[in-house]
Amino acid sequence: MKPASFEYIRIDSAAEACAQLAEHGEDARILAGGQSLVTVLNMRLAQPQRLLDISRAKALDYVRIDGGKLVIGASATQASVEWRPGLAKEVPLLALAFPNISHFQIRNRGTVCGSVAHADPSAELPLCLALLDGEVVLRSRRGARVLKAGAFFQGMLMTARQPDELVEEVRYPLASPGTGHAFEEFSSRHGDFAIVACAAAVNGDGIRFAVGGVADRPRVVTLPRLAGNALDDALNDFAWELEARDDPHASAAYRRHLVRQIGRRVIEQAGRAIPSAGGH
């Protein structure tokens, strides 16, 4: 349970990270919070030749509101977002999701961008980014490009990031008036990987609903403002579309069951959470 040897490079800026990534590509790995990466290093599931440690890069440690989005830099910890006093108004879905992400001690060091870059299919932060149609900024020496979450997540632990690119920041859209949000997940114990995680955003135009932990990436469906049997039917169709598989934690049938049950609950909760027009 000790990592294999590697060269360690402390990075102070995006430009330094991009220079190293341009030179070393897949031989180098970005170390941000390390709450997933050091685990797999300890288990020797990964043995990169170089670690590029951005955890102390002040230039990448920012959380700010810009252009109607909550913008989170590559070195910003999950705790630095979770403990923002205004988070429940800014991005209510994140405020609902954070308590489900592992544990207090892990969120203290784990980063938001690191979770998005890791792209675990059961992870909450990618699920929220997908539901809210957020953005990922990828930077390399060739320049920067901005991808929607739907284009960034490509499969189990797979993303559109090229070997020379840094996930420089992620952008979660701020809540729009008249939209309610809800989040719920099921796991064996609090803080464990989600067997099924569901998020919903509901407003007068309809429903956006997303599921993590079932398909190989967070999956989103847009529905009209359904209720009752029509909603159950739509959720059942979506549950089958996810192509759930049996694994040691849960059967495919049980996962579909959870998507139908938790899905209906979060959609109804999100509907009830729509702020009243008077702002009360």
Binding site: Y8, G34, Q35, V38, M43, D53, R56, N108, R109
Partner: peptide, 27 residues
């Protein structure tokens, strides 16, 4: 456990509780 699950190695780094087993000494 040496993979961040059990919490036995939790220390405070600049005051913040974190796993010593998921932190490199050079960091």
């Amino acid at each position: 456990c040496e993979h961040g699950v059990c919490g036995a190695c939790t220390v405070r780094i600049d005051g913040v509780a974190a796993r010593a087993c998921l932190t490199l000494a050079v960091q």
